[in-house]
Design a protein around this nucleic acid. Sequence first.
RNA 1: GGCAGGGUGGCUCAGUGGUACGGCGGAGGACUGCAAAUCCUUUAUUCGCGAGUUCGAUUCUCGCCCCUGCCUCCA
Length: 459
Amino acid sequence: MSLMLYNTIKREKEAFVPIRPGHIGMYVCGVTVYDYCHVGHARVMIVFDVIYRWLMHSGFDVDYVRNFTDVDDKIIKRAAERGIAIDALTNEMIDAFHADADALGCLRPTHEPRATAHMDAMISMIQALMEKDMAYVSESGDVLYAVRGFSDYGQLSGKKIDELESGSRVDVDQSKRDPLDFVLWKMAKADEPAWASPWGQGRPGWHIECSAMSCGHLGDTFDIHGGGMDLKFPHHENEIAQARAANGGGFARYWLHNGFVNINAEKMSKSLGNFFTIREVTERYHPEVLRMFMLGTHYRSPLDFSDAALDVAKSGLDRLYKTAKRCQESGVTGAGGQALLPHHFTTAMDDDFNTPEALAVLFDTSRALNKGLNEAQDVTALAGQFTAMSALLGIVQQDTAIWFQSGDVDAAAIEALIEERLQARKNRDFARADAIRNELSAQGIVLEDSASGTTWKKN
RNA sequence: GGCAGGGUGGCUCAGUGGUACGGCGGAGGACUGCAAAUCCUUUAUUCGCGAGUUCGAUUCUCGCCCCUGCCUCCA
């Protein structure tokens, strides 16, 4: 079976066929760097990281581009509030972004372009639109895109221009020819950052940067464009309008959109204030737990965020780590030779990246491994599958001992008590042995006796 | 109002025209000095409601109810 993708623009799953055999150009909308990332951003990072890994595993040479929007109203405002330079703010937030993404186990994209480094490309794209009469300068001096001139407008989001209730929620700018027209180039006020352009000092609109940077890195027509569901309209719709009108290319062929992270069935968002930053969560849970949590639901479905849900993800991950630990202790590496993935795992991932089903296969393999280990069978092949699947999903990547024993505990003291308990047990002083177990238990340390000795873990 | 996506066991999450995957939790058993872990068994006559198509529908069609999102910045 070949790779099937749900293409938003077609509203159905279809077989993936790359433009150039063996190669994939993929652009994913990144973030506006004015604040720390929240769990919703984490979902985009993780979802597309798994997609990136799977595409590479499938034999493609993937050019993965993810941008940073580093010029924007919110950035200007935040920098002013904090009394720091814009560069200082954006650099700080880009560093924080990388720290978060790295912690979540996400591979770096092949390119991470910054909007401010691509002004020429944006300006020439706007120029092309002006020449084709697809853009105009409004009374305020801003350059606007003329939506009515693009017949395919609304194709991605399934919206019809005349059915959109423009102005129902926001006052319509009277200088626009059509309420849906959007800014390509914004005139700068006195103390705002500005770049020279044929239309005066100003800065680019939000949408144009993605059109310019994606086409700039991947060409006028490329394979995959992704992002959060909320970017479908108007952002992605506008990107299509700009890029196709400016350069005549087809722009992205496959559109992938991930679902939201919700809290109490409501979208997590800055405006509602119901968000948690990635760093807030990873202070309480290992980043891999967050990753496990994300993988448990299909990427297009909504995902309800809660501590209870993270606890469940952690329990499941612990189970996998136990298997990994047992393999290690038994000297089964699973490495060596080409590890074959279970067929079911491959079909699940090929079917629009069905990670919940892929996880089910991983758990099945985990059980088979445990059983094989119990019965002293040769589990090398199973261990190889287990390792390969884990690596593709980016989980069970930590040292197993550290996974179970991390935290502020005095390992030496625990080991000493374990030794004392061992002696007590040898002397059949079970009262003392149990007292030690209880004492450690009170500290959240669980002892596990086995044929090969006693191990401990943090509960 | 328009458009999009949902409603599956205690919770969660897949899936299929022939009575439903996995995880968490629960129950029983093996094992253990006791535990823990692990393994085994078990935990939805049923997939929002009603009708239709069909030999047969949770899966297809129609209608209805409910939920969420987008239509403004938003991953």
